[in-house]
Simulated scan of single mutants.
Amino acid sequence: MSKRPHIRFIINPTSGPRSKVDVAARVKLHLDHSKFDHDIVYTDYAGHAPELAKQAAEKGCAVVVAVGGDGTVNEVARGLLHTETALGIIPRGSGNGLARHLQVPLSVDGAIRFLNQGHRTRIDSGTINGHPFFTTAGIGFDAYISSVFAGSKHRGLKTYVELIMKEVRNYRHLPVKVTINGKTLDTDCFVLAFANAAQYGNNAYIAPLADIRDGLLDVCLVRKLDMFKALNLSYSMLAKKPAGPDSAEYFKAMAVEVTTDHSIMYHADGDFLGKASAFSVSMVPQSLYVVAP
């Protein structure tokens, strides 16, 4: 490494809209080369980005930039946890939840110029059954939609909304036991969302009051969902305010335990992880540096 801070760009070549942008060319044009050295690497397979990020951190990189969607951001961030290397983001996905929460410009050129400012801050991360997440994790319907969305040929908000409207009538809530803040709830569960950041992505705010630096999970429980409650919850998410008590309940906690007699789907940062009948969710305060205001 030279005396100038080094930035590594990790590009997921499969992320992004059909109209491809030559990110390498834009980096050459907009990165301040008087301030930073850089290199660009590409992922070859799922799970490659954490390796590339960890290698960069071990070499003393100042910043590692995830170029891709929320899945790529999650992978790069996992490789940087508990290091002095900061996560940067060039958002190229359909939701871009962490980029939006951190107020990173959504354009490629704007995100690169934002890196030149060099602002760093620490944020919290969470884990669900040992898997790190940085925006949201959840069990129930949102995880089910993640599994369906992952298999869809089309991306974007329109596809996501169409899937929700198609599947919401067929998905059934399940009984779960939730231990939170020393109390155990026996409850039905349509969605149980664990938020570090305020939104899923696409400005859909599942936990509008979430603070990514407070060391606490914002937990949103939707017990049952009929069409009226679905409309109320959808409006609240888009209006960036908590839903009414008839539609959702909110809690703050450092850790949550969930058990159920039935295996339930779960996700982290929108990536479907599988099914389980027991979940341990917790916060890891101030565990990641990010380039953000």
Rank of each mutant, 00 (worst) to 15 (best):
K183Y: 08
H30G: 07
H262G: 08
A66N: 05
L273Q: 13
S234A: 15
F36W: 14
A197I: 06
R169E: 01
V258T: 11
L217A: 02
T72S: 11
F133L: 07
F141Y: 07
L231I: 14
N181E: 09
E249I: 09
D44A: 15
D109P: 02
H30P: 00
P242V: 13
G182K: 06
K3E: 08
F279K: 10
S125D: 13
H173I: 14
S280Y: 05
Q103E: 15
D37V: 01
V73A: 03
S147C: 13
L163T: 05
V104R: 04
F141W: 03
A204V: 14
E257C: 03
Y42L: 14
C189V: 05
F228Y: 10
V176T: 06
F190S: 12
I112V: 13
T136L: 13
T14Q: 10
I145C: 01
L238I: 12
F9D: 09
Y42D: 08
H131T: 15
G88T: 04
L80K: 01
I128A: 10
L192M: 13
F114K: 05
D218M: 02
A239G: 01
K183T: 11
L163C: 03
V63A: 10
N202I: 07
A204K: 02
Q286K: 11
L216H: 06
M1L: 13
S280G: 13
F36S: 02
A193C: 10
D226F: 02
H82A: 10
F134C: 05
Q286P: 02
L288H: 11
P13V: 15
D109H: 05
L80D: 00
R213V: 00
N196G: 09
G97Q: 00
R78H: 07
A143R: 15
D70E: 14
Y144M: 09
V21W: 03
P242Y: 10
L238W: 11
T259P: 03
I164Y: 04
G68I: 06
N96C: 06
K240H: 09
H173Y: 12
L192V: 10
S147M: 14
L87Q: 04
K229Y: 02
E162H: 14
V108H: 07
F114N: 08
L102D: 01
I7C: 05
T14D: 05
P105W: 15
G138A: 12
I7Q: 04
R26F: 12
G97S: 00
G138Y: 12
L81P: 00
S236D: 02
A268W: 00
N232E: 15
A198T: 11
I180N: 01
Q199Y: 04
Q117E: 13
V219R: 00
G215P: 14
Y235P: 00
R113K: 09
T83M: 02
T187N: 08
V23G: 00
M265P: 06
A62S: 14
P208M: 01
V178T: 08
N96A: 09
R223T: 09
H154A: 11
R113L: 12
V281P: 06
S146R: 02
D211C: 07
V256G: 04
K28G: 07
V67K: 00
K241H: 13
L238H: 07
